[in-house]
Computed example of a mutant assay.
Amino acid sequence: MNAIKYPVNSHQDDEERARRSVWESGDWLTAAQIITLAEMSDYPLRVQPDVWKKKGIIFAIQRGGAEYFPGYGLDHADGFRPLLALTMVTKILAPHRDCWGMAVWFGTRNPLLDGLCPQDLLELEPNNVIAAALALANGQSLCE
Rank of each mutant, 00 (worst) to 15 (best):
D75Y: 04
D42M: 10
Y43W: 13
E67M: 09
E67H: 05
L136C: 06
C99P: 15
V47T: 02
A137F: 05
N127E: 15
I57K: 14
Q119M: 09
D75P: 00
G101H: 07
A60Q: 06
A137M: 09
L74S: 00
A77M: 09
A94G: 01
Y43E: 14
G107E: 07
P82Y: 02
G73M: 01
T87W: 04
R81A: 08
L84V: 11
I34C: 07
A60E: 06
I61L: 04
Y43G: 01
T108F: 11
A60G: 06
A31V: 00
I34K: 01
R81S: 09
A132R: 06
F106M: 13
A31D: 04
A60D: 04
I130W: 08
N128W: 14
I58H: 10
W105Y: 11
R109W: 01
L86M: 03
M102T: 05
A94E: 06
P118K: 09
I57L: 14
D42P: 01
P82C: 10
A103E: 01
C99G: 13
G115C: 05
R81W: 12
T108D: 09
F80V: 04
D50W: 14
A131C: 02
A66N: 05
V104S: 01
F59W: 11
F106N: 10
G101C: 02
T90K: 15
E125C: 11
L113N: 01
M40H: 07
D120E: 13
A38T: 00
W52G: 05
L134S: 02
P44N: 08
G79Y: 00
H76L: 14
T36K: 13
D78Q: 13
L83R: 10
Q62P: 14
L29F: 03
